[in-house]
Nucleic acid binder design. Sequence first.
DNA 1: GTGGTCTAGACCACG
DNA 2: GTGGTCTAGACCACC
Lengths: 137, 137, 137, 137
Amino acid sequence: MAIEIRISTGSSVPIYRQLFDQFCRAVLTGALGEGDQVPSVRALAERLVVNPNTVARTYGELIREGVLEARKGKGVFVARRRLVYTKAERLRRVQEPLDAFVNRALVVGLTPGEIRGLLEEKLAVLEKEQKGEDSHG
Amino acid sequence: MAIEIRISTGSSVPIYRQLFDQFCRAVLTGALGEGDQVPSVRALAERLVVNPNTVARTYGELIREGVLEARKGKGVFVARRRLVYTKAERLRRVQEPLDAFVNRALVVGLTPGEIRGLLEEKLAVLEKEQKGEDSHG
Amino acid sequence: MAIEIRISTGSSVPIYRQLFDQFCRAVLTGALGEGDQVPSVRALAERLVVNPNTVARTYGELIREGVLEARKGKGVFVARRRLVYTKAERLRRVQEPLDAFVNRALVVGLTPGEIRGLLEEKLAVLEKEQKGEDSHG
Amino acid sequence: MAIEIRISTGSSVPIYRQLFDQFCRAVLTGALGEGDQVPSVRALAERLVVNPNTVARTYGELIREGVLEARKGKGVFVARRRLVYTKAERLRRVQEPLDAFVNRALVVGLTPGEIRGLLEEKLAVLEKEQKGEDSHG
DNA sequence: GTGGTCTAGACCACG
DNA sequence: GTGGTCTAGACCACC
């Protein structure tokens, strides 16, 4: 199996969103390469113990975005076309969540130092995960 | 000048949330100071052409978070800043926006270095705004 | 047995407040434990013959206070107990009910000794209830 | 002047309620004796910087309860009839605020010991105040 | 089915 | 005039 997916049911982030993001990241980092087959809707739903509709919705959105492509009767695969944003587009798309995060952090009383620390922690965790994936890719 | 509030009805972020964030921001930058009166529920609702309940909800949440305080029959005012949540709770309450930010950044193709840079920029801007407001308060 | 909730529409204390207090009580005594699902907004509203919004408001406040947590599409559940507020904030948030209690006691003609006695009784009762619930949980 | 009245505008307890309680307590402790004249509505309103309607409402309720009595053209006086509750009535009237206080305290995370401490503090303050009043009555 | 958001409009308490 | 509570009913997102 080429990709490790984890979801948290307690989060307010919808499950289909968590799946979507993880597939995007896997493709970006190369954990999933062009032409790789992804698990079937039923298989993934069973593995994650979620509603198949939820997985189907994720795949649907990824297909519409051009990240995946369905080949009838064969399964779903990583598409050739990669999602690529211009620099300006990247910044635009990240601005709102950045604002929301910093705003929230300051209002609840975190200091700039603590805010930086939180980001570093998160990035560290992600880098570790990524290395883990590379080694058994 | 009364505080300037704008909402976008098309956005996926709920109106009450947009209002909440803008009031937080105004308090953080010093545009709204302790003891200042905010617009009445009805006045703001009329100005923004939204339902008074929506504004009331925003004010209610800001009051519960300790940002504003209501004086019945008088109006709603900016409260004295104070630390409301325990350290653990502050971290907890900032976790989701942090995840949302980092996730979006990664999905969009930003590197950890770029992500750090964006945060630094944002913190710098906010510190400058704060100083600016103090001087013409 | 689902949790038993009763409201009195004639009371001066708002319905959402009555509900709030009863859920708090149930969690404190152990009648509702971590992870338990509470009635759906619609179901409880129907059972009590109140507007669903009123129930939703109660749940919303309990969620913000960390007593409950919502899982979209699943329902509302009892959250893991945790300390949400700083010491100062805890004191602040208990000040008004304290004042109300002492005031009422004095106005009604109770002596400081009697007031102490009432508090002790109440604390004793609650401790007993808690033990009772634990044993047949 | 026979009675010292203090109000806090920040509190969520309505001003008329604060006044009402303080008059009741003054009569109970003897700080205000039968036949004593209380300040005129206008005088008290001016002294406390509140709306005369608010004072008028307080006096009205105290008169309806039989604590005060109005003598036309003369002013308002402490009535002969004292508010007296039976023991059962006293307990009944104090039960609800007691519950509210203890409930709230436990939910925000205060321990029984801290709750006792808060009550003691409050009672200590009140006893000190009362002594102060006696000395310059 | 679940909860979340919003509107429209009523009534009350307070000052 | 102010905010607080409640109802009735709509539409949406999620599972």
